[in-house]
Design a protein around this nucleic acid. Sequence first.
DNA 1: TCGAATACGATAATCAATTCTCGAATTCAG
DNA 2: CTGAATTCGAGAATTGATTATCGTATTCGA
Lengths: 124, 124
Amino acid sequence: MSYSTRQRQVILGILRQASQPLTAQEIRERASRDSAGIGLATVYRALKAFMARGEIAQVEIPGSPPCYEPTDRGHHHHFICQHCRRVFDLPGCVRDLDGLAPQDFQVERHEIVLYGLCSVCAER
Amino acid sequence: MSYSTRQRQVILGILRQASQPLTAQEIRERASRDSAGIGLATVYRALKAFMARGEIAQVEIPGSPPCYEPTDRGHHHHFICQHCRRVFDLPGCVRDLDGLAPQDFQVERHEIVLYGLCSVCAER
DNA sequence: TCGAATACGATAATCAATTCTCGAATTCAG
DNA sequence: CTGAATTCGAGAATTGATTATCGTATTCGA
């Protein structure tokens, strides 16, 4: 099985506290603020282990390396600020999406990404 | 300015004939079927030139290298078949998308990607 | 047609993300 | 507590996409 180490607890805690999905790099940076720092390889190993257990999910964001977030946040989408490049969670969804595809296509899931300026970057 | 070469005509023709956005690799493969073959570097140079002129656009598809398609197809979105991995164009859009973001966010554009099985792969 | 500008092809170089390596440290079941 | 299993850290290696290099070939305006 897999062991519960200090590093993995830190990493999972960071993902749970974050209000956006984070990249492996971002996780390492935040981990290095507190504890003595965590190797990037360790972050990747932990992410792989958490994903195998279904605790976190990978979010593919166009133009950004893959991000990770806890799976318990329910269905939602993302906003990317074109200025600061940060990714934000957007609660909610829209209906009638599946109707976009032809009748004989089976739609299983969807991703919506909005691009623009976040509240901070919009003020200039 | 930029010259009109045999290679660039081939590349643009391939993009126009395709019913889906194509990656640089896919373009090179299709180009090699007819003419004597085109270098990958040439494909990238041509894509860059066409983009500078606004004739084609880059489409960022999660989990796939960037794809390219002519800009004259109007606003549309994409469907990715989880079985054959192909990318399909979906005409149309949905309304009220911008409402997903908080009031103080400026939404400039959006991408919608549907995942599932295309008509061919759904038959099994 | 001439020649400067541009593009070609093949391959090497770059770049960023991710994985591997390996000796040392940690975890945890018994 | 003990030891086998697992993980760690740091850096090297790998991978895949893209760009640069450079000698040659093509394009096209004058």
